[in-house]
């Protein structure tokens, strides 16, 4: 099912945003790098005990995931944001790991592109 996140994002970019195939692939590459960066920031800020920054990172992820047509993952990011705001950074970190797992193949797009 993880692979489906990538497929669904691709379909969303094609059908909803009306991107061409090349544009959609390029967009996925950009998205992958941004998501990787966001997840890393979420993990780092959680580890540093910085709740507001962690919530901010989660919020950025949420916006990206919504624009990728992945609302269920956006919901996970929202949850990470909520718990980070409450100071529960361990839970926020766990939500980040869930996202990383779900987005695995998509994130690999960045590595492939590099």
């Amino acid at each position: 099912m993880h692979g489906d996140a990538q497929e669904r994002a691709l379909a969303f970019l094609l059908e909803t945003h009306l991107l061409s195939a090349d544009e959609a692939r390029e967009a996925l590459g950009v998205a992958a790098r941004v998501l990787q960066s966001g997840l890393a920031r979420l993990a780092a800020t959680a580890a540093a005990g910085n709740g507001p920054a962690c919530a901010e990172a989660a919020h950025g992820l949420k916006g990206n995931l919504l624009n990728l047509g992945l609302p269920e993952l956006a919901h996970t990011a929202q949850h990470a944001m909520n718990v980070a705001r409450q100071g529960n950074l361990e839970a926020a970190l766990a939500q980040g790991q869930t996202l990383a797992l779900a987005l695995g193949p998509l994130l690999n797009t960045a590595a492939d592109a590099d």
Binding site: H17, L18, A27, V30, R33, V34, G60, G63, N64, N67
Partner: peptide
């Protein structure tokens, strides 16, 4: 500030 959101918006506006 988010590169992906920026990229996407650019593409949609171009459309």
């Amino acid at each position: 500030d988010n590169p992906f959101n920026r990229f996407l918006l650019q593409k949609i506006l171009e459309k």
